[in-house]
Design a protein around this nucleic acid. Structure first.
Length: 185
DNA sequence: AATCGTCGTTCTT
DNA sequence: AAGAACGACGATT
């Protein structure tokens, strides 16, 4: 896994890449998410231990080179998303870690366009599991790439905002910038 | 405000 | 391996 810090007007995000693609995006100032190192520069840094063989080093350099365009792409879409603007094409995503059900939910999230919202029940129906609304909420909470996989666009029934793993402040902020924050709670 | 239905995941035996 | 517990929910009482 390679970590890259991405400074933004909202703080320094950290993106984690595997050979498959972007695997995880961390909000700023969540110390527990920044393990084990907190890159200070916007460059790529790898996370494995220092005592590695030359071939291993070479392999990691190769991965780092491969990742560079993905990182550039990630920066772009993240900046757009933070302005509440529709994001362009995403970098390749590595969702290997998810369950089949979770991946279905995350794919469903990717279909919610900027400026639109869906209800947990609506998303459950959209993925063909109309009774699994609560499980859908769980899967949203497990979203490894928030903001880009827009779990913030899922609201509870009846103008209620619902929850957000990274804190409701973030959810409200993102929704407000997209002009979809419910006004009368 | 309290309870119940529902269901995937995680935590316990 | 099996069962209980636990949610970013929703509907009912």
């Amino acid at each position: 896994m390679f970590a890259a810090s991405i400074p933004t007007p909202d703080g320094v995000f950290v993106a984690w890449f595997t050979h498959q693609g972007l695997a995880r995006l961390c909000f700023p100032d969540r110390r527990s998410w920044l393990s084990p190192l907190v890159p200070s520069s916007p460059s790529l840094e790898e996370t494995s231990r220092p005592g590695k063989s030359a071939v291993a080093q070479e392999g990691e350099d190769a991965i780092a080179r491969q990742i560079e365009p993905w990182l550039a792409c990630t920066r772009e879409v993240l900046f757009a998303a933070l302005r509440g603007q529709p994001a362009g094409p995403l970098p390749p995503l590595d969702l290997e870690r998810g369950t089949e059900f979770q991946r279905a939910v995350w794919r469903g999230l990717l279909d919610i366009p900027c400026g639109r919202t869906l209800t947990y029940a609506g998303l459950a129906t959209a993925i063909g599991r109309p009774k699994a609304t609560r499980a859908v909420g769980q899967a949203c909470g497990a979203n490894p790439i928030p903001v880009l996989i827009p779990c913030h666009r899922v609201l509870a029934h009846g103008q209620r905002v619902g929850g957000f793993s990274a804190g409701l402040e973030w959810k409200r902020r993102l929704l407000e910038r997209e002009g979809t924050l419910p006004d009368r709670p």
